[in-house]
Write a protein that binds this DNA or RNA. Structure first.
Lengths: 357, 357
DNA sequence: GAAGAGTGTGAGAACGTTTGCAGATTACCA
DNA sequence: TGGTAATCTGCAAACGTTCTCACACTCTTC
């Protein structure tokens, strides 16, 4: 077996039948006598035959492979999304080709093109920039695309996103009910859908509660750890200083908490913190972190389900699925809890009025 | 473009040349006159031609795709490993087919078989069980395999692992130098290479320091969060109670810390904790977590590099690369630090003797 | 001005499957 | 016994590339 793998011809030869008969025996279609089938199966087993999916794809025009393009699969958020996709797709016999675009539209276009050349049956993408030409061209060619977590304007594809507006509103409402009136934002890049949406929702929420929009408290970061760290420091220097901050993603929350810790800022007394995206380490912080939990896993599962459905029926109109987030109240905003449960979730927020400063 | 993608024939027809000439023009080999080439390129662009990699693979016998099988890509550890693989492989034009085996040898075998049918050029695997028949068969067929993080006996492949022994020893030594003599273990499953290795190294380390081996302090978990949680509780019930615990992986560390927190156990005064595998949230805990940092990203990069090297030269003898871990001293064992740095690392441990109980 | 090298092009055979079709054999019925 | 249907099998044509070969043409060079 030094060279090229065992082929159907080898199996056929050993079973003393034609290639087509061997194919039928292994493929389980058409007419094959029981004895012949048995002989072929035995030969295949003896030779450790593994059918060549490349050749099959060639004929069938389908590769049974899905492309997944995210910005960074080592970010726990996307890691969970990818896992969700896999859990749905693999049982159906689909493989997953994973690509990391690093928020770089050029890289994204490159990988999309690679996936296209590899003739994946469909692509799940969390687009980096705006109006990706590569995606539009994909769509024009009739290759199914599902957008996940983010959407670019004018791409009529299936998509699944989180209700960012509701999540942000719940976070702000929580702070307000605890008496906060000076709330800052460590937000994401306006270039990205989620960054934009959450910032917009934040501004709207403040307006809704009649709170002042202090521009120096509306910070734009990069969704990375160090960015949260720097912006937390910036916030501490600002005067007047806010009493609470909403951080728009998981990594920046880590950075911000590190910044506050280093500066000796007590949470929640001197600064209340709500994060977007709950993590499994959130309950072991001191105080445990209150955060907007996203259905990350579901995001991926839904994307995969939408894609598979479209593969079944290419004509079905594009659907947009909006998944609800859930505010998980712990103690980083000053809410007092009856107890800490292993899952860290406590259902309803516990309002406990707090004098405004 | 409703049906089947644009093919080389279409391009050739439009450029009024033969298929072979079009192939040469686009492939950049053989003789093609500049004017013809230009004509072909223009036609390809006009038709938005994307060469069919499936057909190419058919001929070349290589798919430019690598298989990666890990137990759970949403575990930050493997997420980083996978990312490392990608960062090396994608620039060379290799795609990554990702599979999650969930520590299930049967699933693992299934996915390996799938990857084999898809004719990946090589496979990077973090094997679940012992002596996987699927892997052996792969090897027999001459398909390159690289084992990462774990190794199964009797599989002469390239491999890259962490020096678990050194990592565990450093952790125990750190505790000992801080005066601990009653050290417990929340270990991984003996079924897994890393679980076994770390437990063995732990026992050896205790012996080396002349500490007692209390069997009820040597706990075996599943490497999952809830397992760490349960075993922490168990440890608290044991009497005498240990003054320190070494937790053998990241997820169980989360569980254990949650358990201690819930029980109101003060760290490090009542229980010192060292974890295996450092995480970016370790410095924001109270107290910041001391942990053995693994070169996760490097693990993946090295695996990919080994695999690519083998694809170049299939005859080269298998290599075993052992990467060094690094103890990152923070405060969860009682070491006092000068300051908290953003990266959380402070280089050398700070010995500060502690009376034994 | 013929041999040879250097260019440019196209025909056609692979690669390993799937599958339509036709031929061969058997079974069944009139 | 002949005819038809049912069952089994093999031939050969796809799929979209790559790449060897053969052929044609243009220059050199003696």
């Amino acid at each position: 077996m030094r060279q090229g793998a065992v082929t159907l011809r080898d199996v056929a030869r050993r079973a003393r039948v034609s290639v087509s008969t061997a194919a039928r025996a292994l493929g389980g279609y058409g007419y094959v006598s029981p004895t012949t089938r048995e002989r072929v199966l035995r030969a295949a087993r003896a030779l450790d035959y593994h059918p060549n999916a490349v050749a099959r794809s060639m004929i069938k025009g389908r590769t049974h492979t899905l492309g997944v393009v995210v910005s960074d699969s080592s970010n726990p958020f996307f890691a969970a999304v990818v896992r969700g996709v896999e859990d749905v797709a693999l049982p159906y016999g689909y493989g997953i080709l994973l690509c990391n675009a690093d928020e770089d539209p050029r890289k994204e276009a490159m990988y999309v093109s690679m996936l296209r050349q590899k003739r994946v049956d469909g692509i799940i993408v969390s687009p980096s920039g705006e109006s990706s030409g590569a995606l539009a061209s994909l769509l024009a060619a009739g290759i199914p695309v599902v957008q996940v977590d983010r959407r670019v304007r004018g791409l009529p594809t299936d998509a699944v996103v989180v209700d960012n507006r509701a999540g942000v509103f719940a976070a702000v409402e929580h702070l307000v009910r605890l008496g906060h009136r000076h709330i800052a934002l460590i937000g994401g890049p306006g270039r990205l859908y989620t960054g934009r949406e959450r910032t917009r929702a934040f501004r709207d929420s403040l307006r809704r509660f009649g709170l002042p929009l202090v521009e120096s408290w509306l910070l734009e970061g990069t969704f990375k750890v160090d960015s949260g760290y720097r912006l937390a420091a910036r916030l501490l220097e600002s005067s007047p200083r806010p009493t609470a901050v909403f951080v728009a993603n998981n990594l920046m929350t880590i950075g911000a908490l590190l910044g506050f810790k280093q500066a000796g800022v007590r949470i929640p007394e001197e600064m209340a913190v709500v994060g977007f995206d709950d993590m499994d380490w959130a309950p072991i912080l001191t105080p445990p972190l209150t955060a907007v939990a996203q259905p990350t896993f579901e995001l991926g599962k839904t994307a995969a389900t939408l894609l598979l459905a479209r593969l079944q029926d290419p004509a079905r109109p594009p659907r947009l699925v909006v998944l609800p987030p859930r505010l998980v109240v712990r103690e980083s905003c000053g809410a007092r809890l009856a107890s800490v449960s292993p899952t860290g979730s406590t259902g309803e927020p516990v309002p406990s009025p707090r004098p405004s400063p």
